[in-house]
Design a protein around this nucleic acid. Structure first.
Lengths: 196, 196
DNA sequence: CCAAAAACATACTACTTAGTATGTTTTTGG
DNA sequence: CCAAAAACATACTAAGTAGTATGTTTTTGG
């Protein structure tokens, strides 16, 4: 029961790469088994259907990644507002996995799936909520530590920052250049300073 | 040459409604001709293929709507920052055509099409750019009128606001409630005040 | 009114899709 | 080592897809 787990994982990883680039609907099972060199029998041994695989991508691949790259940097003990800016800078400018022309994987899936698949909606909502909660906690900590104004509404500010992140990812897709990221980051820095 | 224009328009309108709800890829020509009660012959008389129809939706339907609902309210002569907030409030909370669970049509199309169709990318980029330019102009006007600080970078602030709009539309899809819109709007108001 | 072009209708094709049926090979525990 | 289960392979199906071929009807200008 070791090799089997490996093939399951390569299916998930390759499928995710295809979906990140092409979209969920337009990535066919045949595409996936062609790039993974896994046969259809193997695919359907591991997943009962395409949607189960899609949900596994969210739960088994994206959730751990979120914890590492999106939430971890918010729990370092550094200055909260600096931590938020640095995280965004890192995600937008330096993360070599996330490509400007393909946007944010979670946002892509939200756009594509959420309207008509309740399971995807739930999984993506949980994913996002974890990130939101981590940032709210961080801002609250900043308030008690006295480095963020007491009258700042943590949830409100968090939603504002994250909306900006998702939105600028969308602009990046349109313009295919990190130029727009820099605009966003500059203004984000100014906005964050107003919370002190 | 009048009835023909009418059927062309109903195809575009009904197709757009379906695409707004279901997405472009998952809306089939058969879906469209079923809901429009127009036959396949008529459809392909008016459009050489599906993508040409999609581009016509952007150019013949969305662009005029953008001018009316997104750009017009920015050119009323009112206080720039108030105009921006009011526009966002109206779009998010009161516009009865845009549904929280289906997000922003332009953002949806951007997410779905932009990666692999250069024509859609171009059309959507033009669409967005018009909105951006209108808001930049407005902020610049505010600067010369003395109601916005001179050191505000108009483009930067515009990108920041619009990113937030697109992002919060995405959150709305996830949570299917305008609750998140209110959070965004409250914080947007605070942010805009810092530009005075 | 009437031909010609415009506007639409119907039946079809070639292809792709998710998923299944039915195998064979590989691994595993006793 | 060897049966039984796990893991994979191959060939197929049924339903959907965009698009076409070939009609018929309707509109329009002279």
């Amino acid at each position: 029961m070791k090799k089997a787990e490996a093939t399951r994982l390569t299916i998930l990883e390759k499928a995710f790469e295809l979906i990140y680039v092409k979209g969920y609907q337009t990535t066919s099972i045949d595409d996936i088994i062609a790039t993974t060199k896994v046969t259809k029998g193997a695919f359907y041994y591991h997943f009962k259907n395409k949607d189960e695989m899609g949900l596994s991508i969210i739960n088994d691949l994206l959730k751990p990644t979120l914890a590492d790259s999106f939430i971890g940097p918010l729990q370092t003990g550094a200055d909260p507002l600096t931590a938020i800016y640095d995280l965004m800078y890192n995600l937008l400018m330096e993360n070599e996995f996330l490509k400007v022309e393909h946007g944010c994987p979670a946002a892509n899936l939200t756009h594509e799936m959420t309207s008509w698949n309740a399971d995807f909606n739930k999984a993506l909502n949980e994913l996002t909520q974890q990130w939101i909660d981590a940032m709210i906690d961080l801002i609250e900590r900043g308030k008690t530590d006295g480095v963020i104004r007491k009258d700042v509404n943590a949830r409100q500010a968090t939603m504002f920052v994250m909306s900006g992140y998702w939105g600028i990812r969308n602009f990046g897709k349109l313009e295919r250049s990190k130029e727009v990221y820099l605009s966003y980051l500059n203004e984000l820095k100014k906005y964050l300073e107003t919370l002190r």
